[in-house]
Write a protein that binds this DNA or RNA. Structure first.
Lengths: 126, 126
DNA sequence: CAGTATCCGAGTTGATACTG
DNA sequence: CAGTATCAACTCGGATACTG
């Protein structure tokens, strides 16, 4: 088994939306796929420094089940699997944009991680 | 102890933002405080059907530490404690609005919980 | 009223090894 | 390459009981 099907009913939309993006790497996966359009398993892995194969697979499966991600398997040797966002995944990403901006502000306020304070420059990745 | 201080650094804003709203009731707490302005402990409890005192306290403490919630203690008998959103909490809520709308759409698509299908009417709580 | 303190089971994440 | 399988930590959330 992979995911807890959520115990009770959703009380509001925020609730229902947070449920599908809660997971250590889901926000990043969404961002990565939105940025590049199509990504192979190994490419995603490289884009998410520190993720384990297990977690990446698990998150991708859940997001596929939630209708956010499309999984295209090419019957070749060596195997090739491509992941991309579905329409819903894309609209979710759009809805996530303001939150991303807020997060960047939060990071700026705390100037902790991400920027090592050497330069007020580049804060990539919305 | 209450919360894992997060292992690694944040990679993007989405990441940093999701970290502060991930928790079973945080989205609802934000919504409740934004809606009513100021709420006492027991009022919040009533507004979040099913929450335990422990989780409510824990989430409120974390959100206070994250600078989202202000906690005002009145030195009275019986004790009175009032919670409200800080400026950051309010902007976060605003940034969360599109996500809430997406969530409502998701619920409509699946017509699962929330609406029992008897009527296409009321879908309260953004 | 507004919490704290404990205990516990379930769920989530991580590390490692193996496969078609 | 793109995964599975397994085991072990670690967290999260819930239940219960008690306090200033």
């Amino acid at each position: 088994m992979t995911k807890a099907p959520r115990s009770g009913p959703y009380i509001c939309g925020i609730d229902a939306a947070l449920d599908v993006v809660s997971g250590k790497w889901k926000g990043l996966i969404l961002w990565e796929l939105d940025e590049h359009g199509v990504r192979r398993f190994a490419e995603l892995r490289r884009g998410l420094p520190g993720v384990s194969e297990k977690m990446l697979t698990q998150h991708l499966r859940e997001m596929e089940a939630d209708g956010l991600v499309h999984r295209q398997v090419h019957a070749e040797v060596p195997p090739r699997v491509e992941y991309s966002l579905t329409e819903h995944g894309h609209t979710l990403n759009t809805a996530l944009a303001p939150l991303g901006a807020w997060g960047v502000d939060r990071l700026r306020r705390e100037r902790s991680d991400l920027v090592e304070h050497r330069d007020a420059a580049a804060l990539p990745r919305p």
